[in-house]
Every structure is written in C-alpha cells, then in structure tokens.
Design a protein around this nucleic acid. Structure first.
Lengths: 186, 186
DNA sequence: AAACAATACGGAGCACTGTTCCGCTTTGCA
DNA sequence: TGCAAAGCGGAACAGTGCTCCGTATTGTTT
C-alpha cells in the first residue's frame, strides 16, 4: 500500500484530480475542458497531464470501477438468470444504464473519436469477452439467431446510447431492447 | 435564373465553394477544417462564411439534393412495394446507404453535435414526415408493432451509422436490419 | 467614359480547445 | 541540515471555428 513509493503530494494530487474529474463529468459531461478539471482540483495543467497523459486516461480512471463491476456482473447473471437470453438482456440493460447516466460517455467511447482510442480499447478489453460469452450461451440455447458477433452488438449498443441524455424524445433503452428483440429466433 | 441579382463573382464563388466542399468531404470527411475548403476553393475565410454562415449550412448545401431524393423516394416505395413494411425496409436501407457513404455525416447529424443543430433540423424536417408515413402504414397493415415513433427510429438509425465507415468489423446495415426485425410483429 | 456607391473579397486575428515544456518548489533521504 | 530527485504550475504552442474590417470588384448613374 506504499503506492510504489511515489511522493505523497503526488498521491494526494492524483486522488484530488480523480475526485475533481468525477464531479466535473457529472455536471459538464465527459467532454468538459481539461482546464476546468485542473482548476477544480486546484492543480496546474502539468500536474494533470503527468498523472493522466491524455483525457481518455482520466476518463478510464474515473469509470474503471464501474466498468469492472459491469464485466463481473456478466457471469453472475448467466448463473442466476432463468435463461441465457434473459441474462444477456439484463446485462445489456445494465450496460446501457451505465452509458446513459454518464454525460457524453457513449459518444466518446466510439472508435473514431480522436484521442479516445485508449478508452475504446479499455471498454472492449474488459467487456467484449463478457458479452461474447453471454451471446454464445444464448445462441447455444437456441433463443437467438447467431447473426451477429459480440463486437458488433457492443458497438451497436454504444452507438444507440449516443446523445441519449439530452433528448427527452429519445429513449436509448427502448431502441436497444428493440435491437435485442431483433435477435430473437422466431 | 438571375440568381436574385447577386454579383456574378458572388455566384461563381458560391459554386466553387460547393464543389470544393464536396471534394474535401469525400477525401477528409464532413469534419474537415473549414480552412481546407476555403483553400481548395482558392477563396478567403470571409467569403466562405458569407455564403455559408456555419459549417452546417455548407454541409446541408452539399447534400441537399440527396436528402431531397431520399425524401421523395418514400412515397414512391410505398406505392410500389409489395407491403408497407417492405417499403419501410427499403427506404431505411437507402437512407443508411446515404449516411454510411458520407464520411462522418452520421456523427455530425446528431442533435447534440455542437454547431450542427441546423443540419439536424434539416434532416428531420425533410425526412421525419416521410419516415412517419411509412411507419404508420406498416403499423396499420399489422406488420409491425407500433412501439416506436418516427423520431426515435430515425435517431436510432442515425446513431447506428455513426463511425461505420472506418471500421471493417462493424456493419451498420446489418444492425439497422436487426433493429427493424425487432419491430416485426411475431 | 468616369465617378461612385454598393457589394463582395481576403486573411489577420480572436477565443477556445488539447497538449507540451521548463524554471521553480517540495519532499524525503543522507 | 543539505541537496538531489521528484513533482509542480502555468505560460506557450498548435489546431480548431468564426469574426471583422480595410481593400478590391462590380455595375449603375451621369
């Protein structure tokens, strides 16, 4: 727990930055200017960038716990749910909830969002295997057509969540549900 | 054909700008720097902005014909297709083709894409009524569940097309097809 | 043909990004 | 207590979209 012998001001600043970033993300969204976060943490730009070499790294650090929790929920749901498709549905719903409640996260998670490749890669690394396992199980049980791979499903879900938070006429959950319904074997 | 008595250099520059923008959009995408377009047209920034007060206006001007064609295809398909749902499917496919072939257009068509509200509004004005008509007809014929309104469907389709052009692993057409399949009444 | 508004042009400049760089400060070990 | 090493702050850079205004072009009026 020595935190690798870094100086204690460094450790304190990293923590302060994470808290500031988390707060700013809630109020101004994930795309908030880096300066705002540094200012809120009472820290210079250099400090921010030494701890988090790019905006994406900061975003990853802030949401790492929730992404991990989402990844761990997959196998649990599969074990608990009545059927694999039910587990898939619930897992997807929780993922969508996560994306939709974080301002702009879905938009920035896209592969082509310049400078956020690391974020995209992290989400994929962590969640793709989980999604694949659920999808395979649901296909094996005959509940869905195996028409799509986990990558495309994840990307489709992410895309459907883009911009969902500032548009009362748009309900990403419903559209994702429709997409899953399209997978069902009739 | 007098083009409202504007000076002839003005008319010529507007045309040159449209051609330059069109060419740049193809090679560098819709989000290409405005300076690039002005440079390609051999024109100053002031000229560009006088003719197209915002980037969105330029994008609209470049794609206006194709959007209009898409809008007009709706009623035609409804009249021609075997069923309203088939017409809807075909119309959506043509819309997806349009979005996917224009670099970054889908991403920029989103409501929250800062500075592109005008573009979003234009697409909606032009295409929403067409989509609504197709959707209503398909619902009336009993082929689909009326679970979703035209706005949400359009937005969902637009979202699914985001970033589709630079990712060989992602096939927006297939996901949109799945979404439509989710609408079918079983 | 010459003078002269009116119209339109060009590009420097502004405000705002993310990111880098480096002189100065703080820390913790000897 | 001294002093390198580690860390810090924020000015400065490069790249955006967009504005502003002095200058050039146009076409109309004498």
């Amino acid at each position: 727990m020595n935190d690798q012998g870094r100086r204690k001001d460094a450790r304190r600043n990293e923590q302060t930055l994470l808290e500031a970033a988390s707060a700013v993300f809630v109020t101004s969204g994930v795309e908030a200017p880096v300066r705002d976060i540094a200012a809120r943490a009472g820290v210079g730009m250099g400090t921010l960038y030494r701890h988090f070499p790019t905006r994406a790294d900061l975003v990853i650090a802030v949401y790492r716990h929730q992404v991990d929790a989402c990844a761990e929920a997959g196998p649990a749901l599969l074990a608990a749910g009545p059927t694999p498709y039910a587990a898939l549905t619930r897992w997807v719903e929780s993922f969508v909830d996560f994306l939709v409640t974080k301002h702009g996260l879905a938009g920035v998670m896209q592969a082509d969002s310049a400078g956020f490749e690391a974020l995209h890669a992290y989400f994929l690394d962590r969640l793709l295997p989980v999604c694949a396992r659920l999808l395979d199980a649901a296909a094996a049980s005959g509940e869905i057509r195996a028409e799509i791979d986990a990558y495309q499903l994840m990307r489709g879900i992410g895309n459907l969540c883009v911009g969902a938070e500032n548009d009362p006429r748009y309900d990403a959950r419903r559209l994702v549900a429709l997409l899953l319904a399209g997978l069902e074997r009739e």
